[in-house]
């Protein structure tokens, strides 16, 4: 399998009143088609910035991203994003939210019945067919996130970008959605980049875990291959020695090699400057 996505020599600097804040420095990553990549690191290390650059929502200061031989210059549906807080349009039903994406992406190429079938198909992939005519405020957080995933999948993206997709959910819902995502990944063989804070989630879902060093000037510290056979079963893996070993590898990186040394406040300040939102340094 060849490389589908090439992140090469990416630097990212945000202007602040005190001068430039270097968030990322020399990030290099090649991703093969069908690979599931997790980005893990302490908060404020620039994971979201990497994802936003791949999505095209941010422009790298130096270096760039090449997808299928073309440079990424702007956001687009071939790099669908699942946002951390679902980002469904609150005035549309689940169906209409997915439909808007499908119509925008395939509007001319699909007939009306094909569009309807495709929307319904994607909603049933995430088991949302029973509540597809409900509006976001009528369904639970987990269901909203599922619709968000259905919307992203429906765009048939070359790369699926997920920004802590399950971060805001309770543990049981999260486990359920992780299993769902593994099933879907198994059938569709999507290329996925997922940001996560959760070590178990990273090991369970990924083919490779990309571990980032602490900012400022964060970069990729280590890349860990996860050679566990698929389909993976969370219960069986819980006591699998290889799983346990891989898990401790990630933990060691996070808590020994890249231990957060700053105090809570300093951490927050760098978090803000790291630019999860655009508002840099109040």
């Amino acid at each position: 399998m060849g490389t589908i996505l090439d992140i090469s020599a990416v630097d990212m600097a945000f202007p602040t009143p005190k001068g430039e804040f270097i968030a990322l420095q020399d990030v290099n990553l090649k991703i093969a088609k069908g690979e599931f990549i997790s980005l893990i690191g302490h908060s404020g290390c620039g994971k979201s910035t990497v994802l936003n650059i791949v999505a095209g929502l941010h422009q790298a200061t130096r270096g760039g991203v090449i997808l299928n031989g073309c440079e990424v210059r702007e956001p687009g549906p071939e790099r669908a994003v699942v946002f951390q807080n679902h980002s469904l349009l609150p005035w549309l039903t689940a169906y209409e939210n997915v439909e808007l994406a499908v119509k925008t992406v395939f509007g001319r190429r699909k007939s009306r019945t094909e569009i309807r079938e495709w929307v319904e198909h994607n909603l049933s992939l995430v088991h949302m067919d029973h509540a597809m005519h409900k509006r976001p405020d009528e369904i639970s957080g987990g269901m909203k996130q599922r619709v968000g995933i259905a919307r992203a999948l429906a765009m048939q993206p070359d790369v699926l970008l997920m920004d802590e997709p399950f971060g805001a959910l309770d543990a049981l819902t999260r486990a359920h959605l992780q299993d769902r995502l593994m099933d879907i990944q198994q059938t569709l063989n999507n290329t996925v980049i997922m940001i996560t804070h959760d070590v178990d989630e990273a090991v369970l879902l990924s083919d490779r875990i990309v571990m980032m060093t602490n900012g400022p000037a964060a970069t990729i510290g280590e890349v860990l291959d996860i050679p566990l056979a698929r389909p993976r079963d969370r219960l069986a893996l819980a006591e699998d020695p290889e799983y346990v070993h891989l898990r401790s590898e990630v933990l060691r990186f996070l808590y020994e090699k890249q231990r957060k040394v700053e105090g809570i406040n300093a951490g927050k300040a760098s978090d803000r400057a790291g630019g999860k939102r655009k508002s840099v340094a109040a």
Binding site: L57, P75, G76, P77, F83, L89, L100, K278
Partner: peptide, 18 residues
């Protein structure tokens, strides 16, 4: 408008009118 909704619009590459 919520920044995330604007990002959704950008990812979908909605035209100005849409």
């Amino acid at each position: 408008i919520d920044n995330d909704l604007l990002n959704v619009s950008r990812v979908l590459r909605l035209g100005a009118l849409t």
